[in-house]
């Protein structure tokens, strides 16, 4: 079990690095926002793994908060990008 968790952590760290490359390179702002949202998802997964590894279930609260923040940030960025348009939704 320890080895499986270790391998998964390595894979997810790799995923974080790849997403970070897109944040740096991303030609436009929406690309970077998408990459940052992926960041939030991967961090939620990592926190879940930490909860399994350390047997402390309180980590899940942190995971909930991170997921919530990622979602709100995405909504906020979208509103920012679409500013000025008279859309009523």
């Amino acid at each position: 079990m320890e080895i499986v968790i270790l391998i998964s952590q390595v894979l997810m760290a790799l995923a974080l690095i790849l997403a970070f490359v897109r944040v740096v390179r991303g030609p436009s702002l929406p690309d970077r926002v998408v990459a940052l949202e992926l960041f939030a998802s991967i961090v939620v997964g990592l926190v879940g793994l930490t909860a399994i590894q350390s047997d402390v279930s309180s980590f899940l609260d942190a995971a909930i908060v991170i997921a919530l923040m990622g979602f709100l940030a995405a909504i906020g960025f979208a509103r920012f990008l679409e500013r000025g348009g008279p859309r009523d939704d």
Partner: peptide, 20 residues
């Protein structure tokens, strides 16, 4: 549990590869 964890990590890596 191990299968779930590994496949979850693989799907996340897949997402990162895709975004790149």
């Amino acid at each position: 549990k191990g299968v779930f964890i590994l496949s979850g990590a693989l799907f996340m890596l897949l997402a990162a590869l895709g975004i790149l």
